[in-house]
């Protein structure tokens, strides 16, 4: 009996574990293939790099969201925190004339502090993350407008250089933001796979009660993931302000939903406990490639992006359902 189950587990289960990520990868390959077949210019590797350039900030935000969703939580505040970060940066740089090396750590700190606060409320008062981060979302979005109601352009030299410089290799190039985003992905992947914080994150998502009874630091871990999400949102906000060169209260409206979509399409279970940052990276790329495809087509309105994302979400949620159902 044991040997049989052992053989079975060696053959089929490792696939099962990575199945959602593989599904996302094949979807991405398929979409890229379709694009390359239909549009000659699509085959250019720069198209892929542009996806990264246009979505670096989303990638960073989605990485933070991955941590939260892995614990079985959700963070709806990320989009607003992104907007608040752009607004705060712009206002401090332009109106106050603070130097970039002060503004940068400050805004990152503000984002982390917001996440930390929400994490504390979620854990110590035992309130659903949904409602706490919804409150955080309104709070952060509202704070944007106390700074200013209109868009503030940024002309700080550091910001401008980050926006305009290109890291070239051969014929191809990426922006510094892409490098930052990819570094964030690597660090997150490392933390999740090789540190106790990471493993505790998975454990809490798997069964919070067990995690507590097994003597794991549930409080610290839960607060940590929301802090990480807050930090990632702030960093995403900084990258967005590099990209837009402005701060505005209407930036990143609905980005929390894009981030959740990317994480889910990337194969992370919404109930927590299962998923990979690599999947999230692929999820963001899927969203980016859809956008690119629709831009290439030129006949469809940009709303088709939303429709396709919606359809994909349904498919992936169903896929998750099938996988978890088979496990039982």
């Amino acid at each position: 009996m044991t040997t049989l189950s052992q053989v079975r587990s060696r053959i089929s289960w490792p696939n099962q574990k990575y199945l959602p990520v593989l599904a996302t990868l094949s979807l991405l390959a398929l979409m890229y293939g379709v694009g390359a077949a239909n549009y000659e210019a699509f085959g250019d590797a720069q198209v892929v790099l542009n996806v990264f350039i246009d979505n670096g900030f989303l990638l960073v935000v989605a990485v933070g969201m991955t941590f939260v969703i892995l614990t079985g939580g959700i963070d709806l505040s990320v989009g607003s925190v992104v907007a608040l970060t752009t607004m705060l940066s712009a206002s401090l740089l332009q109106d106050r004339g603070w130097p970039a090396f002060v503004v940068l750590p400050l805004v990152l700190l503000v984002g982390s502090a917001l996440g930390f606060g929400m994490g504390c409320i979620i854990h110590y008062f035992d309130i659903q993350p949904f409602i706490v981060t919804l409150a955080g979302m309104f709070l952060a979005r509202g704070l944007c407008y106390t700074i200013g109601t209109s868009s503030i352009p940024i002309d700080d030299p550091f910001w401008v250089s980050m926006a305009q410089s290109r890291i070239r290799f051969g014929d191809y190039f990426v922006s510094p933001s892409v490098v930052i985003a990819l570094v964030v992905v690597l660090i997150a992947a490392f933390v999740l796979a090789y540190t106790r914080l990471g493993r505790n994150t998975y454990a809490i998502g798997g069964n919070p009660r067990s995690a507590l009874l097994m003597g794991l630091p549930v409080a610290r871990t839960k607060i940590a993931v929301y802090t990480i999400s807050g930090f990632c949102s702030a960093l995403g906000g900084v990258l967005l302000s590099f990209y837009m060169l402005s701060g505005y209260g209407l930036h990143a409206v609905g980005m929390e939903l894009d981030a959740i979509a990317a994480v889910v399409i990337g194969g992370t279970l919404l109930t927590g406990g299962s998923g990979y940052v690599l999947g999230t990276l692929l999820g963001v790329m899927v969203l980016g490639v859809i956008q690119t495809l629709i831009t290439f087509d030129g006949r469809l309105s940009s709303w088709w992006t939303k429709i396709v994302i919606g359809a994909l979400l349904f498919v992936f949620i169903l896929l998750q359902r099938v996988i978890t159902a088979r496990k039982r």
């Binding site: 505790n200 067990s210 406990g273």
Partner: peptide, 23 residues
């Protein structure tokens, strides 16, 4: 009272994982 999503080895050792260079 274990976590079904983690590996068998992890379930035995989580919280007390052997580490090397903090990993």
């Amino acid at each position: 009272n274990l976590c079904p999503n983690l590996s068998v080895a992890e379930n035995i050792f989580i919280g007390r994982e052997p580490r090397r260079f903090g990993m």
